[in-house]
Design a protein around this nucleic acid. Structure first.
Lengths: 152, 152
DNA sequence: TATTGTTATACTCTATAACTATA
DNA sequence: TATAGTTATAGAGTATAACAATA
């Protein structure tokens, strides 16, 4: 029979069993751990998760518009502006005039941007291996697939 | 053979395939969707994900200390203060004097707090069902288990 | 009229240092 | 000395309204 502690004393161990049944709560905790680790991994390169993600999409999609980048990253256009500002100020990307639409920019990574991206990619891959070392590769893929399904 | 678009034009579709291989990126997107949905679900009760989580742990662990609650929620003690302040101000919890330690509080949900928690739990369960409707129950459990393993 | 990028603004969550009162 | 709770502060991410220039 389970011993019950005297409620006048602090509980010796704390249960969050109810919350542990909700994906959002567990996901928040996992994501906080991941974000801290990836940001620490990218800090030596003066990048963060968000700036790395933006740079990655620009490298892979030369000529894209800011609105396309915002859509791809699932962030609001106003919040993207300072991210692009930062990458441009550091000469990692260019805001070229968009041919045929004088309102828009055609984003493009510079050589410096591509080189930094290559280094950052290595750091992120090491981070990923570290964070998912408790999972098999099949599990890791399944995790990503389930998260993608939830997002929709 | 794949058609390549003219790089002077904006890419017709944007690829984030590289990023999609990293759990942190996919998790961030899934978590943003979840947090928006759970906060919208809890808004009619004037709760947010964080205040609901705190209330849940207090309901399940009467008499716990603030430092125990901060540990349970994986947040820093200073950040917990305003959360507990808010719950106390709304008479959802009590900061009782902790017997035997005049520095500490013994947290306890009020009847009002327990009633609100019951309502909120229903809202969160509906939210969970909505967000994971693309997953089987086995998959949902596996997802939570994998996220828990990553957190460590 | 609608869209692109921008500014301004506000809210939430997070992280750290330093204080107080107790232990 | 160390711990519980607190204050102050700063950084990062997110969301919305409104604007100028252009379509």
């Amino acid at each position: 029979m389970a011993r019950k502690h005297n409620p006048a004393d602090p509980p010796p161990t704390i249960s969050d069993a109810t919350l542990r049944g909700f994906s959002g709560y567990v996901m928040k905790r996992a994501f906080n751990a991941i974000q801290a680790d990836v940001n620490a991994s990218l800090a030596p390169l003066d990048l963060r998760m968000l700036t790395f993600s933006a740079l990655s999409v620009i490298v892979d999609n030369p000529g894209l518009r800011q609105s396309q980048l915002a859509d791809a990253l699932s962030i609001e256009r106003p919040n993207l502006v300072i991210v692009v500002d930062e990458l441009e100020r550091r000469d990692l990307i260019l805001r070229n005039p968009a041919p045929g639409d004088r309102r828009a920019y055609a984003l493009q990574a510079t050589l410096k941007g591509m080189r930094l991206y290559t280094k950052a990619l290595g750091a992120v891959q090491a981070h990923e291996a570290r964070m998912t070392k408790g999972l098999s590769e099949d599990e890791r893929q399944a995790l990503i697939a389930m998260l993608s399904r939830i997002e929709t």
